[in-house]
């Protein structure tokens, strides 16, 4: 083959009415895997057939966050090499039957897995799902490029921190020049309202101003996220009792096209302080 068909999976996605979204960040540890798990659960709860794809072949974790690590038999590795059928590798979630995991194979996949393999995998998955969420590895090297190759939309995950914002800008440039990504949206994770209030953390407005990418949603720093990870039960599974759980549900609804306003995290206090905060945030120019 002289030039691989870069858009073959795009045609399949369109034909099957499936959306393939990559979660990426450049910088590591900003919350891609946690978000993939939770948005996967949240979309499944909205009755969307959803597949979360672990594309972090070096450091896979998506199985753990979903509590599915002990149920993996086959992986993407066997699917691509012809060692099993697609359905044999997919792991259904224990409680959310609309959600399936496509597990990552062993780290040796890093040596041979290519963008073309990713496009093949996504083409196969597009027949059975409404949404595919791809959990990209950190960095901007081959692993990242392979993850992106399977998507037509991207969620750029950023923390309100200087290095994360810089890396996100670089990734946004790479995504724009990559060719098949037609939508990039920003998700600001681990926001600490108290610190923003004291002007010791970049605000959402700051980040949007600097990156100039449309905002999909905001997730606060929330210790329940860590507890949920320990248990292997994504917060989005339960009732939205904590700030992050609430945000995941809203973001999933925005992804499927609902017009849900993004709440202002610093205007939630009632009483005088809240009203003062709202007054101070009034736009005058």
């Amino acid at each position: 083959m002289s030039s691989p068909n870069l858009g073959s999976h795009i045609d399949a996605l369109k034909a099957n009415n499936c959306r393939s979204i990559v979660l990426c960040s450049g910088k590591g540890g900003v919350g891609k895997t946690t978000l993939t798990a939770n948005l996967g659960v949240a979309l499944a709860k909205l009755n969307k057939k959803t597949c979360v794809v672990d594309a972090d072949y070096g450091l896979r974790n998506l199985d753990l966050l979903l509590g599915l690590e002990s149920r993996i038999v086959f992986t993407a590795q066997e699917v691509i090499s012809g060692g099993c059928r697609l359905e044999q590798a997919l792991v259904r979630h224990k409680h959310e039957t609309n959600l399936m995991l496509m597990p990552a194979g062993n780290p040796r996949m890093l040596d041979w897995f290519s963008s073309e393999h990713m496009r093949t995998l996504i083409t196969l998955l597009s027949e059975s799902f409404d949404f595919i969420l791809i959990d990209a590895p950190a960095g901007v090297e081959d692993g990242f490029k392979n993850a992106v190759a399977g998507a037509s939309e991207a969620i750029l995950v950023v923390n309100p921190e200087i290095s994360s914002v810089r890396d996100a800008d670089r990734v946004a440039g790479l995504l724009a020049s990559q060719g098949t990504i037609d939508t990039i949206q920003l998700l600001v994770n681990r926001v600490r309202p108290r610190m923003v209030e004291k002007l010791d953390m970049l605000s959402i407005e700051d980040v949007l101003d600097i990156l100039a990418i449309p905002l999909l949603g905001v997730v606060q720093e929330d210790e329940q996220v860590i507890i949920a990870a320990n248990l292997g039960e994504p917060l989005a599974l339960g009732k939205p009792k904590s700030p992050a759980a609430f945000a995941y549900g809203n973001i999933a609804r925005r992804i499927q096209g609902e017009d849900i306003p993004i709440p202002d995290i610093n205007a939630k206090h009632g009483g005088f302080v809240g009203r003062l905060g709202e007054f101070l945030s009034t736009k005058i120019i």
Binding site: E161, I162, V165, D169, K198, L199, D200, D206, I210
Partner: peptide, 14 residues
């Protein structure tokens, strides 16, 4: 404030 200085440093570096 530290947020302001993050903002201005980011603008230059970006």
């Amino acid at each position: 404030t530290s947020a302001n200085s993050a903002c201005s440093r980011l603008r230059v570096v970006l």
